[in-house]
Design a protein around this nucleic acid. Sequence first.
DNA 1: ATTTATTTTTAGACTAGTCTAAATAACGTT
DNA 2: AACGTTATTTAGACTAGTCTAAAAATAAAT
Lengths: 264, 264
Amino acid sequence: MISSTVENYLKAFLRLEDMNKKASTSTVARQLSVADASVTDMLRKLQKGGLLEYKPYYGATLTAEGRRLALRILRRHRLIELFLHKVMGYGWEEVHDEAENLEHVVSDLFVERIDAYLGYPDKDPHGESIPDATGFRNEDLDICLLAADPGEYEVHKVVNDQPEFLAYIERESLTPGTPFQLLEKGSVHGLLKLKISGRSEPQFLGIEAAKYLYVKATGDRLDNQARRSKQRRKKSLQSGGERGESPGTSVRRASQREPARRSK
Amino acid sequence: MISSTVENYLKAFLRLEDMNKKASTSTVARQLSVADASVTDMLRKLQKGGLLEYKPYYGATLTAEGRRLALRILRRHRLIELFLHKVMGYGWEEVHDEAENLEHVVSDLFVERIDAYLGYPDKDPHGESIPDATGFRNEDLDICLLAADPGEYEVHKVVNDQPEFLAYIERESLTPGTPFQLLEKGSVHGLLKLKISGRSEPQFLGIEAAKYLYVKATGDRLDNQARRSKQRRKKSLQSGGERGESPGTSVRRASQREPARRSK
DNA sequence: ATTTATTTTTAGACTAGTCTAAATAACGTT
DNA sequence: AACGTTATTTAGACTAGTCTAAAAATAAAT
Ligand SMILES: [Mn+2]
Ligand SMILES: [Mn+2]
Ligand SMILES: [Mn+2]
Ligand SMILES: [Mn+2]
């Protein structure tokens, strides 16, 4: 059996590879809050287990099998996050930590149940894509708000797990799915000026925050499909206290799954 | 932090004490499927941690603190079982194993959420009582079907975790809450003859099975309060395939909690 | 009251995961 | 090309949990 420790390591490697950062001993160590020496040990162990290719002093890359397992956990993590948010009434800033534990423990039956109940979703509450059962990820391209030129956009994903940060973003109404206009960058030092569609007043956002926001151009001139039709509201378990329901969680039927996963 | 291993040990001790069996090294070892020597080690560790009182060669009893922790896990276990059954559409024979893992991992928030959502229940799908947040258990007395004389009864709880056994009991329609009549015992070797209320044909049940069924006398002459008024049906997540919804899951508001827990 | 059988404890070893501190390799400068 | 800095690996140790096999204690039976 594969331990939850190993699962967390694999997920960390996948994440680094996704960001095109090389998976060095120290970056993994930092991500998992363990000592560098612990990572070195684990690298050798995972190499021996055939889950990654490792050349000492040179870094590591996941094998097909390692990648498969990593995607399995990533899928669980994000499905569980969505479940906690939609069904259990968790705030989007509360889901990550709980999912971090549940992802290793829940049965396949559980995962399939929530997957079906949620309608085979492919976006978690933060806008990140949920791999399907075969490991396929429906990645649509987005750009970092930092790199965006003034224009019309929609928040696509928020890549930061810190509860405080997420709570802040929610207060600023910049949860995934929100359409807005980027007005100016840098006119005020370190700030972006933007306006949420429908509002009268513009608002400001720090560079540091913009770093974690990814947006999609929606410029009412470009490809504007059925994008504003996605309020799929599910009745939730939440006892009291309305929680912000982050929209933008598009849904795809299980039947129309894409064929494969590229093995690198 | 308290490990899930320790939590499982504590739960095993509690269970043995509940059955008035002495918690001997070997019985605990058998229950947890570990070697006797492992239990001895753990006994010393738990003793040192103040969770149980242990005299070598003489067995062990939980301290107040150990009992508190054990009840906490028992509560989680049973609440989660009920949640899986009522909300996630699990069959009552499927809930135990999943709960056995989740009980250690889920946050207090999660537990409180499902507790509130289920209406502060005090019976799990097998008819076992769910301790409240203070550790109090609403134990109403029942008798083992083996020891019962012919008469009118209602199934109260089924104390056996084996999926096959539970599936069998469900096929025989003897889930908690079912009213029936015990007709004869032992007329046919090793079998009980009984009839479920409303049915025309009687049915037989083996001694071995009856051992695990606990019943309450309902004999329409005795204390028959509002007992037949408990269809509280909650809409469940179950995708397809109707699952037997074991009734008899009475509900109590959080407000009217009983005062205390006796410390032995 | 011995002897025999059962239960429990000890002794010693193993695995997974982690750490700190020291050694070594790789890298970026002069 | 030699030097100092940074990253990585090694060495050695620790904890939690487990095991098997042998020793010791308790309980049962002659
Ligand atoms: Mn997350
Ligand atoms: Mn995790
Ligand atoms: Mn159970
Ligand atoms: Mn358990």
